[in-house]
Simulated assay, not measured.
Amino acid sequence: MKLRRRRAAALPAIDPCMGDPLARSFCDALAHRDWPTARQILHGTEHPDDRCFLLEACGSVPDVQDWIGTIAATDPLAQLVRGCHATAWAWEARGGYRAKYTQAEQFRLFFERLRLAESSLYDVVAANPDEIAAWAFLVRTARGLELGLEDGEFRFHQATSRHATNLKAHAEWLQTNCQKWSGSHDRMFHLARSAAAAAPDGNMLHALIPLAHLEVMLDREGPAARLYMTQPDVQAELRAAAERSVLHPAADLRPGWPLYFNTFAMAFAQAADHPAAAAVFSRLGDQITTHPWQYVPGDPTKTFNKARATVS
């Protein structure tokens, strides 16, 4: 009798729109160069976190820079899209590796595209200082252009003075304060813990805590990385942050919520807290995000699947 091989389970796909139908419509409109539809969607999205999510998702759409510039000359919303998209476009050129592994040509394109993003976004805030999304993305361009902590902090405060819990601004400022960029572990944790302490229950700012611990893990090698994540005080802080956000009954599942669930899922998996990881994975389903799984060498989807299988 001929034995049949069992077909391997299909890996979940990474959706830059994270299953959000409005973000998918927005990105599809940009892909088809249908600016009136894209503009209508963006104009109607008023919540700062939702607006930032749409503008983050649009970075996955190819060739936007080929046509958006002409429209941006007379339309501030198109200029906003141009700047936010160019930020993602710049990091695409740089790649995901640290500076010592990045080639000179990659850096040339990176800075060229970042300067386009910086110029576009500053045109936006010059015309409308209350455009929170532009300030949030400017935190990232300041980091990429190596403008220093003072510039980044100014932009961060411009965003958060208008929206105190802005997720995008906090995430970008946390990265700037990481040791691998311009800061230190102490600065990073001060920001993460201060923001989480001030955030209401259910808010996803609590995900800054696992993100900070993952950044420390990345600075350690081999067994030292796992030993760090499995320390009782780290495990306890991760649990407390999850109970105030992704595992809280009032968890705020705004567009983009899978990113924060993935962050906790990876942190709990690395911390060998299998019950907590399983609880997050069960709520997450197949909504995998590239970040933070790309922190581990290999295909993010395979890393996600392996972690989920290990804790289930």
Rank of each mutant, 00 (worst) to 15 (best):
L3H: 15
R5S: 10
R5P: 08
R7P: 09
A10S: 15
P12E: 11
A13C: 09
A23K: 06
A29R: 08
H32N: 15
H32F: 13
I41P: 02
H43C: 12
G44V: 10
E46K: 13
H47P: 15
D50Q: 10
R51V: 00
L54D: 04
A57P: 12
P62Y: 06
Q65T: 15
G69C: 08
T70K: 02
P76S: 07
A78I: 08
V81R: 00
R82M: 13
R82W: 13
G83A: 10
G83I: 12
G83Y: 04
C84R: 08
H85K: 03
W89F: 11
W89D: 08
K100C: 14
Q103N: 14
E105H: 11
L109P: 04
A117Q: 03
A117S: 12
S119H: 10
Y122D: 15
R140I: 04
T141C: 05
L145S: 07
E146A: 14
E150G: 02
D151F: 12
E153D: 10
Q158W: 09
T160N: 01
L167W: 06
W173G: 05
T176R: 06
K180Q: 13
H185C: 05
D186N: 15
D186K: 15
R187M: 10
R187F: 07
F189W: 04
A192Q: 03
A192P: 06
L205E: 02
H206E: 07
L208G: 06
G222F: 08
A224D: 15
A224L: 14
A225S: 12
M229W: 08
Q231G: 04
P232L: 01
D233C: 09
A242T: 04
E243H: 08
V246Y: 00
A251P: 12
P255S: 03
Y260G: 04
T263D: 09
M266P: 02
A271H: 02
P275C: 06
A276R: 08
A279W: 00
S282C: 14
L284P: 08
D286F: 00
Q287V: 03
T289R: 01
Y295P: 02
Y295W: 01
V296F: 07
P297C: 05
P297H: 13
T303D: 06
